[in-house]
């Protein structure tokens, strides 16, 4: 389904346009520019105030790479778990009809609006050592999730999966369900139809959802620090490191933020052509 990669169109500046052909009303242009400035200036601020000369010293500490490595691993793992559980959930929401489906959908999207710290507390109450499920898990297997890297993945999955579910559900709703019917008339079970027809059809939506979820997981702070705590190399991800650095050494915090920014931009830019087919 992915559109073939094409060479980028020549930059519009290179072509002469009829004067006034793209005139934008000031009532739209002004707020648009303000909005742009509002979003871009803080990022510029990071770049301007970055302690460039001290940067090499700040960024060569092992804690930085530890935190970055942990961030990348846990965000990727959280995206993987989100795909595994979120795609079938999105299918359930998009393709089946049962009483309470709308309520279920609202519940699924709740983590989108829930303050992540609240999510972290909720996770503790359920999956913590003394939690409703966690207590049983601890007794049966001796496994406790809080303060472990697995706990980081759990917390990130909790906040990131709704992005994926929403994105995939949208793609599924946009995809023609009659393709699944066509597959059924050819002898495909619902699972086969889903796997061999629906999944490829909504692949761009799944990709976009995965990128969103990954980005959200990478930036996750509140649920992670609440549920998984903060221990270098085990649960201290980049955002946690940035926050704590801010307490004592703002210069280091800026340096760490720059890395996070650079990684995010690199990954999103790398995936853009592939998944985000916005012209």
């Amino acid at each position: 389904m992915s559109t073939p990669r094409t060479t980028p169109a020549p930059h519009p500046r290179g072509r002469r346009r009829p004067r006034g052909a793209t005139r934008v009303p000031a009532a739209l242009l002004l707020p648009a520019l303000l909005g742009l400035a509002f979003l871009v200036l803080p990022l510029l601020g990071l770049l301007i105030r970055a302690p460039w000369s001290a940067l090499p010293a700040l960024l060569t500490g092992p804690e930085v790479w530890q935190a970055l490595r942990l961030s990348l691993i846990s965000a990727t793992a959280a995206t993987g778990v989100s795909l595994l559980l979120g795609v079938p959930l999105a299918w359930l929401l998009a393709r089946t009809d049962f009483p309470g489906r709308r309520l279920l959908r609202a519940l699924v999207t709740l983590p989108l609006v829930l303050p992540p710290v609240v999510g972290g507390v909720a996770l503790l109450l359920v999956l913590g050592r003394a939690g409703i499920v966690g207590r049983w898990l601890d007794a049966a297997t001796g496994i406790t999730l809080p303060f472990t890297t697995a706990g980081v993945v759990v917390a990130e999955t909790f906040v990131a999966m709704p992005f994926l579910v929403i994105s995939v559900e949208g793609a599924l709703r946009a995809a023609d369900p009659r393709y699944e019917e066509a597959a059924a008339t050819l002898g495909a079970s619902r699972l086969t139809a889903f796997r061999r027809v629906t999944l490829p059809l909504v692949a761009p939506g799944i990709g976009a959802g995965a990128v969103l979820a990954w980005a959200r997981a990478l930036g996750e702070f509140g649920a992670t620090i609440t549920f998984a705590g903060n221990f270098p190399g085990r649960t201290q991800t980049m955002p946690l490191a940035v926050y704590l650095a801010m307490e004592s050494d703002p210069q280091a915090a800026i340096a760490l933020s720059l890395i996070l920014l650079a990684v995010s931009i690199a990954v999103l830019a790398g995936l853009r052509d592939r998944w985000m087919s916005t012209p």
Binding site: P146, F147, I225, T226, A228, G229, N230, F231, P232, T235, Q236, L240, Y243, L244, E247
Partner: peptide, 11 residues
């Protein structure tokens, strides 16, 4: 060696 270094005392 603690399980976690909390961001503040309330945590």
């Amino acid at each position: 060696t603690p399980a976690t270094y909390e961001q503040d005392v309330k945590g």
